[in-house]
């Protein structure tokens, strides 16, 4: 089941290594955010404002100084997937094994690994590369593997940290559509947080866009995107949303 994400009264400071006083100011102080199960929200804002840090906190890779992040069930039972900016594949495993490996997890086994892997490879168009090693793929193909891996466990929560920013625009466009397809195709859509610098991407994929800025960071603006899905990348309404985000940012 997809899960709510409730972030309450979050505080996070990075100490050390800081020469400027500003760097010791907390990144977040009393930040709250709640996302309903099955929603996909986008997080945008200037570089260094703490977007990746926020995702790391939600993913459990880092701990807040204060405040908490709650899901419907305990952190240990949550099936959480991340698509990072770099694909972070295991270079020594074939494409197929890179996806299959996420079935070897703590706790329960979900579904038929071979079947799901096969199916996902077909959906991301990499069937013929099933036995290729990642270093022999193009950047876009590698990121497709990372996306397939993220969906393999039917996650409750899906975190995306600038997933397409390292790719050329044409490839990124295709992968945005692919991502929408996969996300809509899930029985229960995972609750998603997408961090991006591409405002059209945010408008295209998200139900709601949070504009994060300042230090400590606050949500300077929250923009709802009420568009039915599946959406088209060329919908003129997206450009309206885009303009509103840019206004909020500047």
């Amino acid at each position: 089941m997809s899960s709510d994400i409730t972030v309450s009264d979050l505080k996070k400071t990075f100490a050390g290594g800081a020469r400027r006083a500003r760097s010791n100011a907390p990144l977040f102080d009393g930040l709250s955010l709640s996302i309903t199960a099955g929603e996909l929200v986008a997080l945008v804002g200037p570089s260094g404002c703490g977007k990746s840090t926020m995702l790391n906190l939600v993913a459990g890779l880092d701990r807040p100084d204060r405040g908490e992040i709650r899901f419907d069930h305990g952190q240990a039972d949550i099936d959480l997937s991340v698509v990072f900016q770099q694909p972070r594949l295991l270079d020594w495993l074939t494409v197929e094994d890179n996806i299959r490996v996420v079935f070897e997890r703590d706790g329960k086994k979900k579904g038929n690994a071979a079947h799901i892997t096969h199916d996902l490879l077909a959906r991301v168009g990499l069937t013929e590369h099933a036995h290729t090693y990642p270093q022999f793929l193009s950047g876009g193909q590698r990121q497709r593997v990372a996306i397939a891996r993220a969906f393999a466990i039917s996650p409750d929560i899906l975190l995306l940290d600038e997933p397409f920013s390292a790719l050329d625009e044409l490839t990124a466009r295709r992968l945005r559509l692919l991502l929408q397809d996969l996300w809509l195709g899930e029985g229960h859509r995972p609750t998603g947080i997408l961090v991006t610098h591409n405002m059209l991407e945010a408008a295209f994929l998200a139900d709601r866009i949070y504009v994060l800025s300042g230090r400590p960071a606050t949500f300077s603006s929250i923009i709802d995107v009420d568009l039915p899905r599946p959406r088209s990348l060329d919908d003129p309404v997206l450009f309206d949303v885009h303009r509103r985000i840019m206004q909020a940012l500047t």
Binding site: A59, G60, L61, L80, S81, V82, F84, Q86, R88, L90, W92, L93, D97, V101, V102, E104, R105, D106, G107, R149, I153
Partner: peptide
């Protein structure tokens, strides 16, 4: 570190971390 983080996010089992990550990596 990125690979380690990935294995933590996906909550890979200890034996999987050993067999799929450490052994092949150290072997090479």
């Amino acid at each position: 570190v990125e690979v380690i983080e990935m294995s933590r996010v996906f909550r890979l089992h200890r034996t999987a971390v050993l067999r799929r990550i450490w052994v092949p990596w150290l072997y090479a």
